[in-house]
Design a protein around this nucleic acid. Sequence first.
DNA 1: AGTCTATATTGACATCGTCAATATAAGAGG
DNA 2: CCTCTTATATTGACGATGTCAATATAGACT
Lengths: 213, 213
Amino acid sequence: MADGSSLSNASGGAGGKRPYHHGALREALLEASERILDRDGINGLTLRAAAREAGASHAAPKNHFGDLAGLLSELAALGFRRFSFRLEAAARAAKAPEDRGRAIGKAYVHFAIDHPGLFLLMFRGERLDFSRPSLQEAMDAATAVLAQAAGSGKGGAEAPQALARAGRMVAAWSLVHGFAMLLIDGRLAGLLSHMPGTIGIEALLDEVLGGGR
Amino acid sequence: MADGSSLSNASGGAGGKRPYHHGALREALLEASERILDRDGINGLTLRAAAREAGASHAAPKNHFGDLAGLLSELAALGFRRFSFRLEAAARAAKAPEDRGRAIGKAYVHFAIDHPGLFLLMFRGERLDFSRPSLQEAMDAATAVLAQAAGSGKGGAEAPQALARAGRMVAAWSLVHGFAMLLIDGRLAGLLSHMPGTIGIEALLDEVLGGGR
DNA sequence: AGTCTATATTGACATCGTCAATATAAGAGG
DNA sequence: CCTCTTATATTGACGATGTCAATATAGACT
């Protein structure tokens, strides 16, 4: 997943003459896009920048993604697949079943911390094209992981029960999502700097996740 | 606040000849920007579009805001001031002190629902210039309202107490912020459509806010 | 009056997304 | 092997955008 060494066969070589056809330009563009996202933020991620970083001409992305929204959507889909993977891994790693929710919540926030640009891209609908099947599928899969995690207690389908279950699930989702968003946007930095001693994000996150226990 | 009639003195008049100097171009640009934000979303809000909508030349905003980030930041500052006002009004309207937190939470989400574009602009740091004093002040004021609302229980300044208090405050903030963000981004639409009967956003929000009681 | 300064316009440039036209390579079918 | 077709990539162009420099205008101040 983090490999990518086998994909770039002609970009940086000393041979100098790139073949007219890249061979795996789609993957190269996605990798370049993620690199740009991490380095320059989402505003630096443009079609032309991605093409440049991948060593292609400025209009090359059109063949593979059609559109800027297409490139961003495929990248977001990739992010959602990784996101699901990490959430599931965290759930599996939790020993006791009652620790699962907390473990998933921590994995949720940690993913946002590790990949802030990607996370923001995934959860900012404006620039994405939700009609893309790959994005739809990846999003649905991630949502399913979250729903399954929060809705562990089995309940009937009657309205009041359903509302209560949905409320618990959305509350848990909102809690971790809001924390991640506020943190990524630097909204908690001032608070943390005013805290005594060496209280960091982890302690605060533990407190936030553990408060409802 | 929603007036603005007295500011546009020469834009749409039948007289036709605009004076070289607008007289209140700064306010006109801000009003035009908010109109564009509501109509076309944040991607449609450009310097030139704002100038166009205000009936000025394409470089006019430079004199008042210097920069695109400047215009967006002033608009965000305006949003934060309105935000604080509504949160405080909600806190005042709450009869019992124990209802205050819930009232502020609902006001928080309602603000996001009423002004999604503005809310996203306010809480997306990428395009803002936080070195602007007006934005800083407006943000700090809003944060103070939230902090005061969540930290009603007075506690000492020792580390463990401070951590617990910060945890409660951040948890409450994260909960409403995450709910607002997910809702605005359409992430809860699928969930709501699958709910039986006529369960709407309000019921779900009540459930989310009441779950911790 | 005259001058100064804030305000607004015009024109230009680099960059961006997107399209049409063209070029190149790879594979299919003879 | 040789054509023909198709997928892939490049080039050039266009309008839109942010930003800057140069210029124009009008109100303020002396």
